[in-house]
Design a binder for these strands. Structure first.
Lengths: 213, 213
DNA sequence: CAATCTCTTTGACAAATATCAAGAATAATT
DNA sequence: AATTATTCTTGATATTTGTCAAAGAGATTG
């Protein structure tokens, strides 16, 4: 297990003694697809690192619609500020696939590890990454309209698109499947993409980019 | 000047020698209301700390409308990840009032100061604060509708409201003045607020809160 | 391969907010 | 105080996206 810990960038510079200690204060938990890692409002006692699976973080608006805020992939540190600031989770998190998590007792971690310059630098790195992600969420969802979001998604994920259900893509882009369908039709009519059996071909990437750049 | 530096929480634990060095690599710049601190896309060479004034950070959407993302107040560290990640500014910043800024050569700062555990802890604190702020921007603007945003603003800023122009409030809430006017009228009709000459009285705070809690 | 189930598309309509234009209220200036 | 300039409000209309319902297309199962 200490070997496994060592392989995470956050811990790569720790000596064996520290790793053993870290091992003591942490454990691995597995989750099934669809299960909830935490609910909005929960308090956090553990620092959580996503080892396997895709985690979706969302809020629910007044009409009861999910508003998807993040996706986390391995190996991401999840919501560390909630630990750092002793806050409540500002959103809920649900596994989009089966997953696995490393759960570290945070108080001990802060006391014994966060002073270590390598750890704190990695922690800064992780926070920084999160800010970039949030900036992107804001730029995408507050500044861009539906068509722009679809165009951006197509340009950035043209490959993955065949594997995903359209309704799933729509949820990720915070729009309804109907709206997505209509936009794809429009882009198709404009000759920017071609809808095939199972795939969407991008015919004019530059044309798509004009919607959001 | 070193005394002044010492008064910022980020530097409060530095010894005199370090402060003198910090002084060497930094300088104070003054800005007039309406002037631009940086444009979206600019590259950053300096770590910027807002000493005086209110700074507005915004993007421009495709129609040319400003979308206001943040407000910074003294003493905030501005967009430190842009330095840390050697990125370009993802948005523009404009002074809403006359202002003053401490500009620190970032490369030197990272090399000579960021290793210091007190500094790095304060840096983490600052990043953490920013994440909370961004989470709030997202929660407010992506999850809440116009009425909820106005209600929240009234509850949180009931005092300041008389000093601000309505068009300015509307811009801050990312809606048009017309929409704000209509919502205030609606809330007034519902008996939750009372519009007076120069002020808005909150008659039923709990009633307002139901719009967004 | 027919029946069933799920997902996607389409159409008609509704809701929220923006836009444009005009009038009303306030504030500033002469 | 009268005039002028700003800002705010109101009404009419447009735009974007969501909602609901039904039809169509694909996939799955017996």
């Amino acid at each position: 297990m200490t070997e496994k810990l060592k392989s995470f960038y956050l811990f790569k510079d720790l000596d064996d003694k520290s790793l053993a200690r870290l091992d003591e204060i942490s454990n691995v938990i597995e989750y099934k697809k669809g299960s909830i890692l935490f609910f909005e409002g929960d308090k956090a006692a553990n620092l959580i690192i996503l080892l396997e699976g895709i985690l979706q973080v969302y809020k629910t608006d007044q009409k009861g619609n999910k508003v998807i805020l993040h996706h986390f992939f391995p190996v991401d540190v999840i919501a560390e500020i909630v630990n750092f600031e002793h806050m409540h989770y500002p959103a809920s998190a649900e596994f989009e696939s089966d997953g696995k998590v490393l759960s570290i007792n945070y108080d001990t971690f802060e006391k014994e590890f966060l002073k270590n310059p390598d750890i704190s630098f990695a922690f800064i790195k992780s926070l920084s990454k999160k800010i970039k992600y949030l900036e992107n969420v804001i730029a995408t969802n507050m500044v861009m309209n539906s068509t722009a979001r679809v165009a951006k998604f197509l340009c950035e994920n043209g490959d993955k698109i065949s594997k995903l259900k359209k309704s799933h893509i729509a949820a990720n882009l915070n729009m309804t499947p109907e709206t997505l369908s209509r936009i794809l039709k429009k882009l198709s009519t404009m000759g920017l993409i071609e809808k095939q059996k199972d795939e969407i071909l991008i015919l004019d990437k530059e044309g798509l980019e004009t919607f959001y750049l």
